[in-house]
């Protein structure tokens, strides 16, 4: 039976208030809470549900990142993934390189479906799924809010600016997830214990024969411009008056 590959990324937790380093070399990530990119968590949940529905027989979770990414992969295993692959790499890579790495894993694993988040909430690029689909020469459905699998065809509803759009894809294919696709399950303690025994294999870019490409050079990182402090009004009358005074009404 068939396999689903889920690509996840270790990112700064979505509740953390990001601060830019004073020297402009990046954002502060030391001692900051990390987690699975929320959109990828939704991707994993969808894969697990497809497996529970009998559409797939195995869920393999894969990631590229530093050694600490094992924590997030263990969480993914605790959620229910069957095994994990970590392509260990200490530095941030560009999405095209990530897609090339995932293509190697796809060639190795031959999944029916690859599911990943529509974007990572750290660099907000939103490219990896589409790039993988292109390199793999397979269909893509981005921003999914509903996924149905029927034999070798997927019907995917996507959240687009105009509303909802439905596509039909020949499998294998790549799906990227939006927030309303599902609500990821919480992991329970016994599962965390069980996950420790599940297989987690580590690879390197070198072993996969991939060199990280670098097209974009970050010269500096700056905080967004600060807004001028606003005013508090005491009632609706003052609100309307202030709006008129500002020329907003």
């Amino acid at each position: 039976m068939s396999k689903i590959l889920v690509c996840i990324k270790r990112v700064v937790d979505y509740n953390v208030r990001i601060r830019v380093k004073p020297d402009g070399s990046g954002v502060i990530t030391d001692n900051v809470k990390m987690g699975i990119n929320p959109f990828d968590e939704i991707a994993l949940e969808e894969a697990l549900r497809l497996k529970e529905r009998g559409v797939a027989s195995e869920v393999v979770v894969v990631s590229i990142g530093p050694a600490e990414t094992q924590q997030q992969l263990r969480t993914a295993l605790a959620m229910g993934a069957d095994r994990a692959l970590l392509v260990e790499h200490a530095y941030a890579i560009e999405p095209l390189t990530a897609a090339r790495v995932f293509l190697k894993l796809v060639e190795k694993e031959a999944p029916l479906l690859v599911i990943t988040g529509k974007q990572a909430i750290d660099d907000d690029n939103g490219q990896t799924g589409q790039m993988l689909a292109a390199l793999w020469d397979r269909p893509q459905a981005c921003f999914a809010s509903k996924v149905e699998i029927n034999g070798n065809i997927a019907k995917v509803t996507r959240e687009v600016d105009a509303g909802l759009e439905t596509l039909e894809l020949d499998l294998p294919a790549v799906i990227t997830t939006d927030l309303r696709l599902n609500e990821p399950r919480y992991v329970k303690l016994p599962e965390i214990m069980k996950a420790k025994k599940k297989p987690l294999e580590t690879l390197t870019l070198d072993a996969l024969g991939i060199t990280a490409s670098k097209q974009f050079n970050v010269t500096k990182v700056t905080p967004p411009p600060v807004k001028q402090k606003g005013v508090m009004v005491k009632d609706v009358t003052e609100l309307v008056a202030t709006l008129k005074q500002m020329g907003s009404l």
Binding site: E94, P95, L96, A99, D124, N125, G126, Q127, T128, G129, Q130, M131, L132, A133, A134, L135, Q140, C142, F143, R158, E159, V160, D161, S213, Q215, F216
Partner: peptide, 20 residues
Amino acid sequence: TFGKDVLPRVAALLGVGQLS
């Protein structure tokens, strides 16, 4: 959603990266 969907796919076909 139009550009975010298609442009990364075009970039990968051309073997280049993309800025978002």
